[in-house]
Design a protein around this nucleic acid. Structure first.
Length: 593
RNA sequence: GCUCCCGUAGCUCAGCUGGAUAGAGCAGCUGCCUUCUAAGCAGCUGGUCGCAGGUUCGAAUCCUGCCGGGAGCGCCA
């Protein structure tokens, strides 16, 4: 890739001119302002600071001059300039861009390189609960986690996705009472999850006022935990009903998991873990419960097991066993980490959850590293913000319930259908439905991935489906337009096959588009580095914008043969990058819209 | 009280981790369809980057202190 070649050459030049420098700190990156060239190096200024003698003013420009004398990039660049306080600006030759594009057109790459150091990466995301509807709270985790999984796989890593389903816990006591005493069989058969939610809510509210019901729920839970045959059977049934729902949702979202090891998978391991933590002194008894406390090895401010209240530092333990003998989610999560490490030996384990769990994961990781100090895997909590409604409060239905994922996806497709129907009424019903599906689901996903993952965002149908501006349909349409060009060119009797060597960049819009294509790989690396797909969204939007300009200014079909063949190559590359980029985001494309 | 996050155009948000003159979309005006999908393109208008200091060649970005908003803080997950 052009960028990495320039970087290598520049590093070599630095090594020649200043043998003591750490060339790893020398980087080349695309210019944000085309006025200063195509690529730039800003590393000379900080370097000059280091090289300057004590008390002496750093002087970057002479350093840059010396480096340029040792640099040979005449084959790739029109010129290389030193500018401002010590920027090195590269103006690349069009032939250099063309040659990278031709290689891509020949199928040698798609403007990115697979990693040279493949890692095994476990990604934990989605985590819905049994007997409950998937809702807005699962959207970001599911969509973000899936996008990251797709990216890391594409970059050549060994990705293991694991859905940590909530299939165990106190709620099953109430569900069992509900199942046995309040279930409406007809409703259950018609649509099981809402009926399960109904009886759960019913029993839950009864327990608040009726001690008898509360005791029954506890008894049923104890029986389940004790392996009671009947309750175990009901529990299995609840899981099976829920799995049907999960599969339906994941199929609509195009999300797949390698594993779905729920909380219950780790049940038997929990007592042993708590004993181990007690034996090693990592955990101790507190008010009848058992918890992991601070070991005092961190500064108080950074210690996840401490908090300041009224001027005094108090311990915030991560409880691993409740007073009543039940286990907490920290215990399950420790068991999960242990299993993932021993089973899969990953270099990295990624948790995709909401921002409220930051403290939990800090405690979890700290506790685990104390328990298993030999751990070498990178433990990452990739957290994200809330989805808000118009009122800027967490998105809810009018009744104050969570918005169900199913309803949300239905509405997305329905709204998309109305637009497709209006814009493209001549298509048959099935085609319109399919386009509406791709557009509707794509719009929801893109709206979720576009903001910085850590910020809250306001859910806005009109915005995500407005079909103008930075939204999925605009990107999908760019792809569709390219398909249209290819189709019409062929229909007009021209040869629309791709001949890589016929690529010749002339117009400004062509060169700008091609340059943007070259930046694809850098963006993918940046997304992986910080787990931030929004960088890819921005890139694809800019790429589509440059394509639109090209589309306006550079006719393909009506140009003379040589130009037509060249532009077809550029179109094809653009379509492939958009398709690949959207694919990473889990968004489909359509040849017709 | 403590920890984390946020505060950028009228609105919704980016801003590549310290780079050159802070960018989009929406909203509001102005042009462009007998021409590959106008679901588009070109242009105009719009900014004390919450406030005040500091660090340096250079700050929306880093450090400190305020102001304002959100989340979390012992047996839920």
């Amino acid at each position: 890739m052009l960028h990495s070649i320039l970087e290598e050459r520049l590093r070599a030049a630095f090594a020649t001119a200043f043998p003591d420098t750490d060339v790893g700190e020398i980087t080349v990156r695309p210019c944000q302002n085309p006025k200063f060239g195509d690529y730039q190096c800003i590393s000379v200024m900080p370097l000059a600071k280091k090289l300057a003698a004590e008390g002496e003013k750093p002087n970057p420009r002479p350093i840059a001059t010396n480096v340029l004398e040792a640099l040979d990039v005449a084959d790739l660049c029109e010129k290389v300039e030193i500018a401002g306080p010590g920027f090195i600006n590269f103006y690349v030759k069009v032939e250099g861009i063309e040659s990278v594009c031709k290689a891509a057109a020949r199928g040698e790459h798609l403007f990115f390189e697979k990693t040279r150091k493949p890692r095994t990466i476990v990604i934990d995301f989605s985590s819905p609960n049994v007997a409950k509807s998937m809702h807005v709270g699962h959207i970001r985790s599911t969509i973000l986690g899936d996008a990251l999984s797709r990216l890391f796989r594409l970059l050549g890593h060994n990705v293991i996705t694991d859905n940590h389903i909530g299939d165990w816990g106190t709620q099953f006591g109430m569900l069992l009472v509900g199942w046995k005493e309040h279930l409406d069989q007809v409703a259950l058969e018609a649509d099981p999850i809402p009926e399960l939610e109904r009886v759960y809510k019913l029993v839950n509210s009864l327990t608040k006022t009726d001690k008898v019901v509360a005791d029954r729920a506890r008894d049923e839970l104890v029986k389940l935990q004790g392996g009671d045959k009947e309750n175990f059977g009901v529990w299995k049934k609840l899981i099976a009903l829920s799995e049907t729902q999960f599969e339906e949702m994941y199929a609509r979202l195009g999300v797949k998991f390698d594993h779905a090891l729920g909380e219950s998978f780790y049940n038997e391991k929990l007592p042993g873990i708590v004993e181990d933590l007690l034996d090693t002194g990592i955990a101790r008894v507190t008010d009848g419960a058992i918890g992991v406390f601070s070991d005092g090895n961190l500064p108080k401010k950074q210690d996840p097991f401490l908090n300041q209240k009224d001027g005094e530092w108090v311990g915030i333990p991560a409880l691993v066993r409740k007073k009543d003998g039940g286990f907490n989610y920290t215990t399950t999560d420790l068991a999960t980490l242990e299993h993932r490490n021993s089973e899969w030996h990953p270099q990295e384990i990624v948790y995709v959850t909401d921002d409220r769990q930051q403290q939990h994961f800090q405690q979890l990781f700290a506790a685990y590293l104390r328990w298993r100090p030999e751990t070498s895997a990178k433990l990452a909590h990739v957290w994200f913000g809330k989805i808000l409604g118009d009122d800027r409060k967490p998105l809810k239905t009018r009744d104050g319930d969570n918005v169900k994922l199913k309803d949300l996806l239905n509405e997305a497709e329905e709204r998309a259908f109305r637009i497709v129907d209006e814009k493209n009424s001549e298509l048959d019903e099935a085609a319109k439905r399919e386009i509406a599906r791709i557009v509707g689901i794509g719009a929801v996903k893109y709206a979720d991935l576009l903001p910085h993952r850590q910020s809250d965002y306001v859910f806005d149908w009109d915005k995500m489906l407005s079909f103008s501006g930075n939204a999925a349909p605009y990107l999908q349409m760019s792809y569709t337009r390219i398909c249209g060009i290819r189709r019409k060119t062929e229909a007009a009797g021209h040869d629309a096959s791709i001949q890589p060597d016929l690529l010749k960049l002339g117009e400004e819009a062509e060169i700008a588009l091609a340059k943007k294509l070259l930046g694809f790989g850098l963006v993918l690396d940046a997304v992986g580095e910080d787990y931030r797909p929004n960088l890819l969204c921005n890139y694809l939007y800019e790429l589509s914008g440059l394509f639109s300009k090209f589309f306006e200014q550079c006719p393909v079909m009506k140009s003379e043969a040589a130009i037509r063949r060249s532009r077809l190559v550029l179109c094809d590359l653009t379509a492939r990058v958009i398709e690949q980029g959207l694919n990473i985001l889990g968004i489909e494309t359509s040849e017709v819209m």
